[in-house]
Each structure stands twice: as structure tokens, then as C-alpha cells.
Write a protein that binds this DNA or RNA. Structure first.
Length: 139
DNA sequence: GCCAACGTTGGC
DNA sequence: GCCAACGTTGGC
């Protein structure tokens, strides 16, 4: 199973809002970047992702699951971009901050570190495991 | 098709 | 609020 990292500014869409959407989840739209789009298109139902708060928190705060694969974003007038649906799985016991991620040698190749502006990123199995460990989420 | 200029993102 | 980095746009 592939893993992902999805970034959002808490002021526009926060983890709290995602969590409130519950099991039925919500769509994840607003992607306007082709690299991010390719990642969205590669997602499969059941894939898990980290929910990252940019700007204010700068931390991974929760885990989400893809519940619907890529489909056109009808709010995008250009018709070029689409979105997926996802639901909140759980909040991390302890958010993992960007500073902590940067300080962890095993995470030095994370896209978050090297290409911080990309809003939808792949996460390797190793990176997924390490971040969970740092969040106090064992297993 | 190249590349400079511009806009946006996001860390600090 | 500033600025660096990146992506996109548009002129040639």
C-alpha cells in the first residue's frame, strides 16, 4: 500500500474540519499543480496519508485514508485538475513537527524536506514508519 | 521551444 | 511580513 502526505493551511482546511467530516469523509480539492495532480491520480482506495498543517503548525497532525480515487474537480473551470475523497482515520498522539522531521536523519530524503512546496507528496514505507514512531504511534 | 518575468507558496 | 524557491505564463 502506498502512503502519501497532504498539506493544508489550517486557516483554509484544518484537521479539525476533516475529523468532523467523519467516516463519510470529504473531497480534497484545490490542487493546482501538476506534480501534485500526478500523485493524486496514483492514489488507490484504502491508501493512507499524513495530514500536514502548513504555515501555522508546520506539523503532521493526523492520518487520513483515501476513500475515492481521482475524479474531475468540477470547481476547476480549466478542467485540468481533479480531486480525491478522503476521511480522517485518527489524530496522532503527538504531532510531528517539521523541525523534528528535519532533525531526523532517516527522514532527510522526505519530499517535505526537499520540496516543501509540493502539496501532495509520496511517502516511503520507511518514512511512514519513522514518522509514526516519532508520533508515539506504535505498530 | 527557450527563457525571462511574474505569481504563489510556505518557512522563517 | 519578508524573501527564497518553485511553477507557470507569455514573448520572442
Amino acid at each position: 500500500m502506498a502512503h502519501w502526505l497532504l498539506k493544508s493551511e489550517p486557516s483554509s482546511w484544518s484537521w479539525d474540519q476533516q475529523a468532523k467530516a467523519g467516516a463519510k469523509g470529504t473531497f480534497w480539492n484545490g490542487v493546482r499543480n501538476h506534480s501534485a495532480k500526478l500523485n493524486l491520480m496514483a492514489m488507490k482506495k484504502g491508501d493512507k496519508g499524513f495530514f500536514y498543517h502548513s504555515n501555522e503548525d508546520k506539523a503532521v497532525v493526523g492520518i487520513v485514508e483515501i476513500i475515492k480515487t481521482y475524479y474531475p474537480d468540477h470547481t476547476d473551470e480549466s478542467g485540468k485538475f481533479g480531486m480525491v475523497d478522503l476521511k480522517a482515520v485518527k489524530a496522532l498522539k503527538k504531532p510531528v513537527t517539521l523541525a523534528e522531521i528535519k532533525a531526523e536523519p532517516r527522514l532527510k530524503d522526505m519530499v517535505l524536506v526537499n520540496n516543501s512546496r509540493l502539496s501532495v507528496q509520496p511517502v516511503s514505507d520507511e518514512e511512514w514508519r519513522v514518522v509514526l514512531e516519532m508520533a508515539g504511534e506504535k505498530g
